[in-house]
Amino acid sequence: MAITAKDVNKLRQMTGAGMMDCKKALVEADGDFEKAIELLRKKGQKVSASRADRETTEGVVVTRTNADNTKGLVIALTCETDFVAKNEDFVGLANKAADLAFENSPADVDALLALSAGDITLGEKITETTGKIGEKIEISAFETMEGEAVVPYIHSNGKLGVMVVLKNVNGASVEDAGKDVAMQIAAMNPVAVDKDGVDPTVIEKEIEIGKEQARQEGKPENIIDKIAQGKLQKFFKENTLLSQQFVKDNSLSIQQYLDTVSKGLTVTEFKRVSIG
């Protein structure tokens, strides 16, 4: 049957696919819109598969928190180019994924992808968008948090997000303090909240590095261990959140800064999600 420009435009409005793709799909489907939509989805699957080995180093990070800021989540939707990362459909898809995750509390990325996003799943929607845009798209990070106060922060480039859990709030207004701490995490990328949270393998590695540095400096063997322990303490101070110098006021550590907001206020957990 003859495919009119009106038919092509209608399918384009329904799917968001390109004009030529819509025309080809309608011709192959003999004018059947449902079949044409299915063909376009299949094309998306083919595009997705053909780009599976591509790196996704661009994208957006999106956060959500509930009304009383006791629960939150952060999601990173990634793609191949900055141009696509700024695409309205792509950003809308990231927000759709965040909304679905927030409403349904999936256990992991696979469960999130299986959620219904209208008449198809979120995973199918991502595949469909891959076909439409022509780049690999994936959810590269999905983290959830809960506690007394969950404070989110998105860096100005949209590619870095942080969520912080505070405790011992004691009725204080902690949103600004939470944002300050989140910005600290974004800038300084601590390895853990405090030394107790540092992976034992990291500690072992730092001790060995400290010992080797001391030997290279010609220090006596009987004080090598002591020197290595001193270097480890310096590592904790520089690389664990609560011990780090507060970037806005170097006279205070992060824990000392939090104490000025509310005595005993501290951080129990954080997540830092960065793209690229």
Rank of each mutant, 00 (worst) to 15 (best):
159 K>R: 15
215 R>P: 07
12 R>W: 08
200 P>H: 08
88 E>S: 12
184 Q>V: 11
219 K>V: 10
27 V>L: 02
192 A>L: 05
159 K>I: 03
256 Q>P: 06
92 G>W: 03
30 D>F: 00
168 N>G: 10
191 V>E: 08
251 S>T: 15
147 G>K: 07
274 S>H: 12
178 G>Q: 08
99 D>A: 13
140 S>Y: 05
109 V>K: 14
260 T>E: 09
142 F>W: 05
88 E>Q: 13
125 K>G: 04
249 D>G: 08
152 P>M: 03
228 A>L: 07
149 A>W: 00
254 I>D: 04
37 I>Q: 10
96 K>H: 04
238 E>Q: 13
49 A>V: 11
41 R>Q: 11
111 A>E: 13
268 T>F: 10
38 E>T: 12
241 L>Q: 02
52 A>W: 00
176 D>T: 15
187 A>S: 14
62 V>L: 11
220 P>F: 08
168 N>D: 14
107 A>P: 01
15 T>S: 08
197 G>P: 07
173 S>F: 00
273 V>M: 09
48 S>E: 11
47 V>R: 00
60 V>S: 11
70 T>K: 08
263 K>T: 15
238 E>A: 12
173 S>I: 11
130 T>R: 07
208 E>T: 11
186 A>C: 07
129 T>Q: 10
81 T>R: 02
58 E>R: 05
67 A>D: 15
88 E>L: 07
88 E>G: 01
120 I>W: 00
136 K>Y: 04
206 E>R: 05
248 K>E: 11
276 G>T: 06
138 E>S: 13
47 V>I: 14
